[in-house]
C-alpha cells in the first residue's frame, strides 16, 4: 500500500489546523497515522510587536530529519505537503511558481530598501530618455 505524507485537518470551524502526517493512502483523513511529522497552521499571524516592517507569517512545525527519511524510503507527498517540503529543500519544487515568487519578493524588498528612488530616477530620467529605454523596464520579467 502506498505511504503518503499528507495533511490531516483538525481545528474548528473556520479555524483550520493541520497535522502533517505519514499515513497509508487508503486510510481515512483523520484516522490514526503511522507518524505525526508536524503541524501546519494556515491562518497568517500578524508581524511580531516591535517589528515595524515585518510581514505576516504562517507557522509550520516539522521534524525535518524524519521527513527526509520518509521521502527517502518512498513516501509520496500530496501536492500541499510537497509544497511545504520543497520550501525547506527536502524536495524539488513541483511547480516553479514559488521560486519565481520568492525572487519577486526579494526584488521588492531590495527595491524598498533603496532610499528615495524618486530622486534617483528623476536625476536619471534625462539620461535614460536619451538612450531610448524607460526606467524599470528591465525588472519586469
Amino acid at each position: 500500500m502506498v505511504v503518503r505524507i499528507r495533511l490531516a485537518r483538525f481545528g474548528k470551524k473556520h479555524a483550520p489546523f493541520y497535522n502533517i502526517v505519514v499515513a497509508h493512502a487508503r486510510t481515512a483523513r483523520n484516522s490514526k497515522p503511522l507518524e505525526v511529522l508536524g503541524t501546519y497552521d494556515p491562518s497568517p499571524k500578524p508581524p511580531k510587536p516591535g517589528d515595524t516592517y515585518g510581514r505576516p507569517w504562517k507557522e509550520v512545525k516539522l521534524d525535518i530529519s524524519r521527513a527526509r527519511y520518509w521521502v527517502g524510503v518512498g513516501a509520496q507527498p500530496s501536492d500541499t505537503a510537497w509544497r511545504l517540503l520543497s520550501m525547506i529543500g527536502i524536495l524539488e519544487p513541483q511547480y516553479r511558481v514559488l521560486q519565481r515568487q520568492g525572487q519577486v519578493v526579494k526584488a521588492n524588498t531590495a527595491a524598498k530598501s533603496i532610499i528615495s528612488p524618486s530622486k534617483a530616477t528623476s536625476g536619471l530620467s534625462d539620461a535614460v530618455e536619451a538612450s531610448g529605454r524607460p526606467v524599470g523596464e528591465d525588472e519586469s520579467g
Binding site: F10, G11, F17, N19, I20, E35, V36, L37, G38, T39, P44, R55, P56, W57, K58, E59, V60, K61, L62, D63, I64, R66, L84, M87, I88, Q101, V104, V105
Partner: peptide, 27 residues
C-alpha cells in the same frame, strides 16, 4: 508572496511512548 512561512524543527520523540504526551506537537 503574501507571508513568510516559518519552519520550526522539532523532534517527534517529544510525543512520548504512549504518543499522548502534551509536549508533543500537533493534535
Amino acid at each position: 508572496r503574501r507571508w513568510d512561512f516559518v519552519f520550526q524543527d522539532f523532534s517527534i520523540e517529544t510525543v512520548g511512548k504512549s504518543e499522548r504526551s502534551l509536549e508533543g506537537v500537533g493534535w
